[in-house]
Amino acid sequence: MGQTRIALLSNPKSTGNLSQLPRIRAFCAEHPDIFHYEVEQAGQIGEALKTIARVKPCMLVINGGDGTVQAALTELHNGGHFADAPPPVAVLPNGKTNLIALDLGAQGDPITALGRLLEIARSDLASSIVARELIALRCGDSTGKPVIGMFLGGAGLADTMLYCRDRIYPLGLPNGLSHVITALAVLVRQIFGVRASFLPPDTEPVQVSVRRSGQLSGRFSLLAVTTLEKLLLGSGLRGSGRGPLKLVIIEQKPGSLLRGIWAGIAGRLGRSEVRGVHVEESDEISIESDSSNVILDGEMFRASTGKPILLSPASPLSFVRLAV
């Protein structure tokens, strides 16, 4: 058997894989330079990467939603399975949100993307590699092992993500329609002040501390921390240049939300002052609240008084970017 070009790590229980996995298995069976490892739950990813490290792949491809990617990145960072030289990581377009895959240019059919990644792995891999900063999340303790990710949503954004996951996705609608319905519900709730049991809940007050920039306290329609180049409200940010963590906060006021949305659409987010919209870059952020959720790439954590969510940069990792 020749060199293993790609190690493919699949989560069969990821929503997108329910229909696509038989095609992916068939594709892998036809290409012996792909080593395919399937896990049933996140707790098996450590053993999977230990096995994958033995075959020494040129590229690690993750086939699952953002939660699967986050679990794999955390294990790559904390597990030491590849010593100091992990293979570059690629992400197939799959799952519900695919923010990480989108940032890396992976869109459309996962089989097509896997075929393109195999071509890259067999040729000039170096020209497609990009470095990405990662977020290290710790809950109230700066010394423990962190959870690693690339996009965190808090305050009203976390409430919206949970509302979509718990109330809209179970309706069985297409992803795009589910996201449109969620967006309309948020606009009705936050811009017109309508309160109803079928709309997203009130947001809890949150205190955000940014190293060297001070604190912000209040109720926020959106709180996002990311290292991704592409964001929900635009293609990129320019902040203070003080660190790799990009922070966006929109105050919970109808005018602020509308101005923030328009600034994102117009490409002005972080490039000019927008009232009620705060954009920062930092190397240390803490989020504290009496009781408020944050979601890092699909996994939920709770910020509470005396036990803040602590965010800092993790060691950068190499990723494989598909041209868009």
Rank of each mutant, 00 (worst) to 15 (best):
A158G: 07
A121E: 04
S221F: 07
T143M: 00
F151T: 13
L216K: 11
I24R: 02
L269R: 05
A7T: 04
L173D: 10
P254K: 00
I24L: 08
I100E: 05
L173S: 08
V206P: 04
D166V: 03
S19H: 11
N94I: 03
A85T: 13
S291T: 13
L104T: 02
P146W: 00
R122N: 12
L8F: 04
A48P: 12
D66S: 02
V324F: 09
L114K: 00
P316K: 03
L237T: 03
E38W: 02
F220R: 02
L134F: 12
A266S: 15
K50L: 12
Y37H: 09
F319Q: 01
V274L: 06
A48N: 06
A72C: 11
R138K: 05
S127G: 07
E133D: 15
S240W: 12
G298I: 07
E288Q: 11
G64K: 04
V294M: 06
R5Y: 08
S291E: 10
L310R: 01
V186K: 09
I62K: 05
S304N: 08
Q190S: 12
D84A: 09
L310P: 00
R238F: 02
C164P: 12
S289E: 06
R211Q: 15
K96Y: 12
R23V: 05
K50M: 11
R122Y: 06
L222D: 02
I181H: 02
L231H: 08
V147R: 14
S197G: 14
R122K: 12
D33C: 08
R23G: 10
F198I: 14
K96A: 12
F301C: 04
S256N: 09
P174C: 04
G236F: 08
R189Q: 11
G156A: 00
I168V: 10
Q107P: 05
I191T: 15
D66F: 01
I6T: 06
S209C: 15
I265V: 15
P87L: 12
G264S: 08
G176K: 14
T97H: 02
P244I: 10
I100G: 07
L228A: 05
G156C: 04
P93C: 01
T74D: 03
G172Y: 09
F192P: 04
A224V: 13
G43M: 11
T203V: 13
L177H: 08
H77M: 09
L117Y: 03
P254H: 00
V130E: 11
G243R: 03
P86I: 08
F192Y: 07
R271W: 03
D202N: 15
E75Q: 11
D297I: 07
A126G: 08
L134M: 15
I181L: 13
V206Y: 02
